[in-house]
Design a protein around this nucleic acid. Structure first.
Lengths: 224, 224
DNA sequence: GTGCGGCGTCAAGGACCCGTCAAGGCCGGG
DNA sequence: CCCGGCCTTGACGGGTCCTTGACGCCGCAC
């Protein structure tokens, strides 16, 4: 069903969680400390992380900080500390839920279900491929028919915004905001100029775009 | 910042929440009972709902059930009952978090921030499906029999207003207001022209609409 | 039957938006 | 200093979309 990474140094609790989560149909990966947690999170690509704040090596919030820049799934924090200050800190550090020990197992499972229900199906694809060109977001490179093509910084910023939302329409305000900044919300000129350049460089027939479509009055859409 | 709908019958608590949420930069809409909650949720399009389970008219889970078919934002449940059984029921009924009274205000705010943060990362908007066409609110795309259909901005604005309230009647004043602006409350002409265009593009038999119904003198209704 | 109000349809005009091109300015490298 | 990318800006033609008015239909009240 889903892969759960459980981070805790309490062997007893770890064992109980493993059994219960397995019984609920989840695949379980465990880590006994912070370093292992970061390692396992990178290796196993879990759907959700259950993180105990009291770890032997790292502080729980440090693990959270190490996770958050790239891990987009939900994180449920376990802690013995019930002080609301701790809760606020953990939640603001990127946690999605905070459960104090001792906790009821059924409640934990229900909270996990709630978090997983929200999980979206867009796990940040690093490389986008079409019949005519490929866009490697990580390497910052696009190739057309296997041949690398150079893009200017602005062209790249615009293309990556569109490619990150395949099939979805991206509003012109949003494009202008994230490529040129909030002060340029009305400069739809730029969009026209740069989509034309992108089409010239990427589309097989720039006059009749097949991938970079424009929706008059609304925005642009990349369709793979 | 964000629009919060607070549902509670305790006037004291409602007042405290309103003040605190306003201070945190949120726009606050309130409802004292379940019926008003459903009404306000439809009218105000809140980003998040804070729902007390103990209401005078409806049970909280009934409100949740009425909300969930179409409201996709997060719902934070408040309750005086700390039994884990109640928590599990609420979470499985569609709640995203469960906080027991009495609660710490800072923690509530942090949990709201956490819920809203998710919304901005992964705007999980709904997809409305009928036998003949589908409307993807997030991608801003409608397909009829599998083929994408282009809608103009106005057509889209009108359709999304109707589709966001499936089965419910939407008054002409409300439609005109949210699509064309408050100054156009009397231009029912526009509604006739654009519903006709939508029907031509979406309905299998535009002359005998099956999904976009007219309620003479009142408004329009989308029935899935 | 007759009048009336609300609705659906159609078409035309004008405003708006888009694609295109090219000139000018800014900046860094040679 | 000059030169070449790159970004900005303006102008223009063509197409799209919104607005607006006219017309006929239907249901209802009288």
């Amino acid at each position: 069903m889903s892969r759960v990474l459980v981070v805790d140094d309490d062997v007893q609790l770890l064992r109980a969680l493993r059994i219960t989560l397995r019984a609920a149909g989840h695949e379980v990966v465990t880590a006994p400390d912070g370093a292992a947690a970061l390692r396992e999170a990178a290796a196993a690509h879990p759907d959700v992380v259950v993180l105990d704040l009291g770890l032997p090596d790292l502080d729980g919030t440090e693990v959270l900080a190490g996770l958050r820049p790239w891990f987009t799934g939900p994180v449920l924090v376990l802690s013995a500390r019930s002080d609301s200050r701790d809760k606020v800190d953990a939640l603001d550090a990127g946690a999605d839920d905070y459960v104090t020990k001792p906790f009821d197992m059924d409640e934990l499972l229900a909270r996990l279900r709630s978090l997983l229900r929200r999980r979206s199906d867009a796990p940040a694809e690093p490389v986008v491929v079409t019949d005519h060109f490929t866009v490697d977001l990580a390497a910052r490179q696009v190739t057309v028919d296997g041949v690398p093509v150079r893009l200017t910084p602005t062209e790249w910023a615009l293309l990556s915004e569109l490619v990150r939302a395949p099939g979805r329409l991206v509003g012109q305000k949003q494009l202008l905001q994230s490529v040129w900044g909030p002060a340029y919300e009305r400069e739809t000129n730029y969009l026209r100029v740069y989509t034309a350049q992108l089409r010239r460089k990427l589309e097989p027939d720039p006059a009749h775009p097949r991938y970079l479509h424009t929706e008059p009055g609304m925005g642009y859409r990349f369709t793979p």
